[in-house]
Write a protein that binds this DNA or RNA. Structure first.
Lengths: 238, 238
DNA sequence: GCGGCGACTTGAGCAGGATCAATTCTTGGC
DNA sequence: GCCAAGAATTGATCCTGCTCAAGTCGCCGC
């Protein structure tokens, strides 16, 4: 029996797996810049909108959300980041970060000071290509969520979200079918452009239908292919 | 009286303005790669999802939309591109384009073959920084629309959309308060995660309230500051 | 100029998700 | 261990935006 309760604390097979978003050995980067380590506790901000933009970050362990804010106080969760994910890239080219990054679990983060990253790109042409590709990947991820939000019903969105979590867990070597959500219902709701009650109901209903089992934040996907089929139906059915 | 009907055919002050997204002189790029010119008629695709990724594109004249597609046939407009905007960047790092780009008006496009762009980055360090910044900018734009879609009512979204069009027109030296929409109601609706009837009603209602005047695709913003205030209210009011 | 098609508007009725509210369950602080 | 605060669930009701439908308008081809 697996132990999803300590996911973030299991060491995956490759010791430098946390650098895979950039596809590079961290040690190679250390030759070009001072890579420091930062620890965050639940609820702490890695950075806030408006703070001077000084670095990119790689998640080594833990879990974070990014939040977009408007002048008039509206707030939107725009994504969740886990081991291996890059943070701060959206603020490249600005003097200050453009959004908030908040720890949803205790985190260990590698800080890559930014001007040095640019410099390193000149010496490691590979790095430049990787960084650009990582940015493009981020655009594609955001757009595929726009597609989901613009075209799927509440329940389909939630199912899609669970399948996405599963896929990301699988890529890190964790169980795709049994995991603990690190974010609250309200964060999922904001991300999917819903209300937390709606997310709660959707989860309950997916459970009733036998697709999943939910107990607070512990989720089991009982039949992933069937769940995929359920999401795929969304268009052909109506 | 201005003549918004021919916006796309007016030459703006700076002859190389169409390159401003990359902040570079196109002639400088020509030294490193073969920049070719492509013309498109309304309805033609600049590229389609699945076609081999070979180039980035700069819009010199005309107007396009980008569409995200799902395997099961769902479709979502993810953005609109006009003079000076970059296209294709979302597909960097892939073998094939990940979305469709469709002309909504006759277009003239500059094609920047991709591997050569990467090569040019090595010789013009400035270009690398600009390209990366352009990608980051695209992420921020997408996320600010996620915020709008996730937090604003239909009518507020439409108003925000009009203000965005106005701002982009202003940046190109056109009138921000009187313009012709190049896309149909259905495209606006998809982009804002609404239905075309809802967009139509929102426009009519904004007109009733005296914020704008609409006649088919011709739009006048009668009081931009007031319209901004109307959008800004969205949170404080509820 | 006329006919036909597609884009847009508008209305009526419906429904999916929001809102408001009550309750249970967890968790952390003392 | 107990209490308080917060997170999640669930129910009842409301309302925004969707659906279905009819009708208008403008434009292109002939």
């Amino acid at each position: 029996m697996d132990t999803p309760f300590i996911f973030n604390h299991i060491e995956p097979s490759h010791p430098n797996a946390a650098g895979f978003t950039l596809g590079l050995d961290i040690d190679q980067l250390r030759g070009h810049m001072l890579v420091t380590r930062r620890k965050l506790k639940v609820g702490q901000h890695l950075y806030r909108a408006g703070q001077p933009f000084t670095a990119l970050y790689l998640v080594h362990a833990g879990f974070l959300k990014t939040c977009e804010l408007s002048e008039d106080g509206r707030e939107q969760v725009t994504g969740f980041r886990m081991r291996g994910d890059l943070l701060g890239a959206e603020s490249i080219g600005l003097a200050a970060y453009s959004c908030d990054a908040v720890a949803l679990d205790d985190c260990e983060i590698w800080e890559l000071p930014y001007p040095p990253v640019l410099g390193a790109c000149l010496h490691i042409p590979e790095l430049q290509a990787r960084l650009t590709a990582a940015l493009a990947e981020e655009i594609r991820r955001d757009r595929s969520w726009m597609l989901a939000i613009g075209t799927l019903s509440a329940e389909h969105r939630v199912a899609t979200f669970l399948l996405d979590v599963a896929a990301r867990h699988a890529k890190l070597g964790f169980s795709p079918s049994h995991f603990i959500l690190r974010m609250g219902r309200a964060d999922i709701a904001s991300f999917l452009a819903l209300k937390h009650e709606t997310v709660s109901r959707a989860l309950s209903h997916l459970e009733e239908q036998g697709y999943i089992s939910v107990l607070r934040r512990e989720v089991k996907l009982l039949n992933i292919p069937l769940l995929r089929a359920y999401v795929g139906q969304s268009c052909t059915v109506h």
